[in-house]
Design a protein around this nucleic acid. Structure first.
Lengths: 169, 169
DNA sequence: ATATATGTTTAGAACGTATTAAACGATGAT
DNA sequence: ATCATCGTTTAATACGTTCTAAACATATAT
C-alpha cells in the first residue's frame, strides 16, 4: 500500500513534469497553456481519456476542457475515439509530434505569405494613381514596394523548404 | 499640396497595413504585438530611426519603445546604428526575414529538446527505486518512458532538418 | 557647475485572455 | 414521458500581460 502510493506519486510527478515541459514549449510559440496541459495528459496516457477524466486529472472545469480539446483537434494533435459501450467522447493524442508541428508551421506560413501579394498590388495602385510626387516621396514609395517584394519572394523558398523537410522526416 | 498629402496618406496607409500584417504573423507565434509594430516600421523605413521617431510614429510611450526595441535586438531582428553627429541611438531592421525566423526556431527547438533527457533519467530513477509495483503501475511507467523516449529521438531529426534548411536557403 | 538631451526603470492603470459556474440542449435509458 | 447523462454555450470574473507617465540615471554641451 505504502509502496504503491509512493510509486503512483512519482509517476504522476513525472507526468506533471512533462506537462510543464509541454507548457513551456507552447509558451515559446504563444499557444494556450491549458491546451498544452491537455495534450500532455493525453500524450502520457496509455489509453484514450474521456472529458470527465481530463477534467478530474487537471482539476479544471468541464467547459474549459470542452473548448480547448477542440483546439487540439483543430491542430490534429488529438482525435475523438469511439469506445464500445460508452456514450462518452474519448480522446487520444497524436503521438507523432513532428507531424503536428510541421502541419501547424505549414498552414501558418502558407496563409500569411499568401496575403502579401494583395498588399503589393494595393500599394502599386496607390503609387500610380498619385501624381506630383516629390523626389522624397517617390523614394519612400519605392522602398515600401521593394520591401514587400522581398517578402513575396519568400513564398517559393518557404514551400520548397517545408516540402523538403517533410520528405526527409 | 493637396496631391502630396493624399500620396503621403496612402503610403502611410500601405505601411500601416503592412504593420498590421506583421502583427498577425507575430500573433501566430505568440510574440508581443508592439514588438511587431516596431519591426514593421523599421522594415519599411529607408533609413535607421531613432527612439524618438519610433515613439512618434507609433504614438507610444518612450518606455515602451525602449523595452521592446531591445527585444527586437535579442532576436537579431534589429540593430543599433551609430549616426554621425547625433547622440541618439538609431535602429535599423534586419531585412532577411528567413534568417530571423530560422534563428528563433533553432534556438527554441534546440533548447527545449535538450531538456528531455534529464526528465528521462529522472523517471528511470523513480521507477527503479520503487518496488512492489502492480502490473498496472508497471505498464503505466513503461508507457511514460516510451513517450519521453520518442521525444528525445526528435532531437537528431530536428537538428539535421534545420541544418539542411539553413544550407538550402 | 548647471542645464539639456537622451535612454531606462518602475509602479500602477488599462486591457485582453482564460477560466469558471450555471444554464442549456441533446441524447439515450427506464 | 420522464429522468439521468453528457457536451456546449454564455455571462461574469479572475488573472496576467502590456502600456503609460513619472521619476531616475547618464552623458554632453554651455
Amino acid at each position: 500500500m505504502e509502496e504503491t502510493n509512493i510509486v503512483e506519486n512519482s509517476l504522476e510527478k513525472a507526468q506533471n513534469k512533462f506537462i510543464n515541459y509541454i507548457c513551456s514549449v507552447c509558451d515559446d510559440f504563444g499557444l494556450n497553456r491549458f491546451v498544452a496541459q491537455l495534450y500532455g495528459v493525453l500524450y502520457m496516457s496509455d489509453r484514450p481519456l474521456s472529458l470527465d477524466e481530463l477534467t478530474e486529472r487537471l482539476e479544471a472545469s468541464k467547459g474549459n476542457v470542452s473548448i480547448n480539446i477542440r483546439e487540439l483537434e483543430k491542430w490534429g494533435a488529438a482525435r475523438k475515439i469511439w469506445v464500445k459501450g460508452s456514450r462518452k467522447d474519448y480522446y487520444e493524442a497524436e503521438l507523432d509530434i513532428k507531424k503536428i508541428f510541421l502541419n501547424k508551421l505549414k498552414s501558418s506560413v502558407q496563409r500569411r505569405l499568401g496575403e502579401v501579394s494583395g498588399m503589393l498590388t494595393e500599394l502599386d495602385k496607390a503609387i500610380q494613381s498619385a501624381n506630383g510626387l516629390t523626389d522624397e516621396e517617390r523614394k519612400m514609395a519605392k522602398v515600401c514596394r521593394d520591401r514587400l517584394k522581398r517578402i513575396e519572394e519568400l513564398r517559393g523558398l518557404a514551400s520548397t523548404a517545408l516540402n523538403l523537410v517533410d520528405k526527409i522526416l
